[in-house]
Design a protein around this nucleic acid. Structure first.
Lengths: 223, 223
DNA sequence: ACAGAAGTGTACTGGACAGTCTAGTTTTCT
DNA sequence: AGAAAACTAGACTGTCCAGTACACTTCTGT
């Protein structure tokens, strides 16, 4: 018996998402359909019957996998939140030598192009609309979203300050300024005006460049 | 007959909100109760029975004043949106001589203290959560909120640039940068973390000061 | 004082929806 | 092959809710 044989007996026990048995496939179908419907119609606006129908699954099966509408909702929102947060984290461009401005711009653009996406915007609207009903979900979104990005940014700025490439008092505040200089304009626009108001890539680059310009004017050392 | 007598015959015909007849009082009671409930429970989460009960009015009376739940909701959101927008507009501090930084700080603080209010935050959450169902409401909020403030700011910056007190390329972009430098941090925090996360006045002043500092570093002329 | 408007309370219609139950079918594992 | 587990279709329960109907009471302007 090989050393990894102990896994074979319980292929589904761990690694929640993976697996391709019938049950796992149905589960994925339910999650996919529920995600669409919740994002489109909101928590109260969504019915379990519709989720079942859209998943091509019976209502019973939905309830076999998820104990309640609430549980299904929480599962979906937290996993989407985590995925999005990870995306921002993983796609970090290298600190490659070269121009600081260029580096900051590429980071800003990356973040913009992950966040300013119909799905992510719908998630944000959904969670914000449910702050009163699901405060934990909003808190998680805040921590995995802005908070996490601010952490990354502020430690990056600290390093840059040590190298004399930035002149920074509180790196946390600098990170906030950077983040919102770049994101807030398009973010707020798209939050309220809907997904058609999401800027195209070229425009996102402009936002990134303008934000970085102002940031460096305030925090840069190269006068 | 005095010149103003022509008004006496139809005291309720104009001036929607004013008036103190029985009917007008009930109408106000309904609006007040409905505002509370909608802000607390959202559009779908609110029932007309609860509004009637909380207004101390019969359901019939509610429907005599407002043709449907939707109409009542729209009325409430638009009027709250307009009131808030007007508040920002009316409370403009004077362009008094004296320090530019001080002036910008006081403007920033004023805007912060109007927006970072439980009611206004709840309104924002409500409208954002209903973007898909009521896109017009979100659009109105965007225009009467951020858009209007940006208009005021950018014409103000234009004047200041003409006087040589600021050095500005596109005043619209400068206005966006100013606005979000000051507001985004606390706004996003409070949107997701709830009303207890609304900073106290002292902290709002700090946000105003930090934002203005960065803004002037990028756009100021006094080096 | 009195007519008409406004308001009350309660009951009702029609529909939706979360979650359960049942009886029978399909898939999977051994 | 055969048993256990998963799945299906559809009916069903209990509740909630927007909007209406009705018979009765209270205000208000003239």
């Amino acid at each position: 018996m090989a050393a990894w044989d102990w896994m074979k007996g319980t292929p589904e026990t761990q690694a929640e998402g993976a697996g391709d048995g019938r049950s796992a496939r149905k589960r994925q179908a339910i999650l996919a359909a529920a995600t669409d419907v919740f994002l489109r119609d909101g928590y109260l606006g969504t019915s379990m019957d519709e989720i079942a129908a859209l998943s091509g699954v019976s209502k019973q099966t939905v309830y076999k996998h998820f104990s309640s509408k609430e549980a299904l909702f929480i599962e979906i929102v937290t996993s989407m939140t985590n995925e999005t947060g990870d995306a921002v984290h993983n796609e970090m461009p290298d600190i490659a030598g070269g121009d600081l401005a260029r580096y900051l711009e590429s980071y800003a653009y990356l973040q913009l192009s992950i966040v300013l996406t119909p799905r992510v915007m719908q998630l944000r609207r959904l969670v914000i609309g449910e702050v009163a009903r699901f405060p934990e979900l909003a808190q998680v979104l805040y921590e995995r979203g802005p908070q996490r990005a601010l952490g990354i940014l502020s430690s990056m700025f600290e390093r840059l300050a040590e190298r004399g490439q930035l002149e920074i008092g509180d790196p946390r505040i600098a990170a906030e300024h950077f983040n919102w200089l770049v994101m807030s304009g398009p973010l707020n626009r798209a939050m309220l005006l809907g997904d058609e108001a999401i800027p195209k890539p070229a425009e996102l680059r402009r936002y990134a460049a303008e934000g970085v310009r102002v940031f460096l004017a305030a925090y840069g050392t190269a006068r």
